[in-house]
Amino acid sequence: MIDFLKQPWPWYISGPLIGLMVPLLLILGNKTFGVSSSLRHVCAICVPLKVPYFNYDWKKEAWNLCFVGGILVGGIIAGAFLLNGQPIEVSPKLVTEMSKYGITDYHSLVPAQLFNWPQLFTFKGLILMVGGGFLVGFGTRYAGGCTSGHSIMGLSNLQMPSLIATICFMAGGFIMTNLILPYILMLN
């Protein structure tokens, strides 16, 4: 059983289970599924300063911080007990493409050759981690949600703005991955 669980879970099992987060949160307490608002709450707690956007009663949103804290703990549990140490199986096309940039290690879900502490002090690492992170935080709040808030919760509730947001998430991702990222990966 545990060996079975240690394999990657197929999309038709994990996808519907992720979708069930929506009714679970609604039924447990009228909560709207969403992750990125937690970043706003952290700002509201730590550095609200005089910015009106961060001056609200974040304690009312404490559930959301518990929720993301849970995601972290879930990551710890899965990482400690539910991974089998096998390299991640990706499409052969990606393997060929990535080998051009010297990315050959598939033992971690996150490429260890790109995302590590020494890399953080290179131009490439700075763009990927610090630059990328900044865009994620800025963009999700500007868009009013992320993959969970818009693409899953919003689409589940048939919201047109969420469909527009999701299309733009994907468009941004396609542009970056195919037109810009190759040049970034070529950096040393």
Binding site: L135, A143, G144, S148, S162, F169, I175, L181, I184
Partner: peptide, 22 residues
């Protein structure tokens, strides 16, 4: 309009970091 501009910006970040907030 934030859903368009912000959406694109998040898309860029998503592709770079390989991670959305969750």
């Amino acid at each position: 309009k934030g859903q368009v501009y912000g959406g694109l910006i998040f898309g860029f970040g998503w592709a770079l970091t390989g991670a959305c907030p969750g």
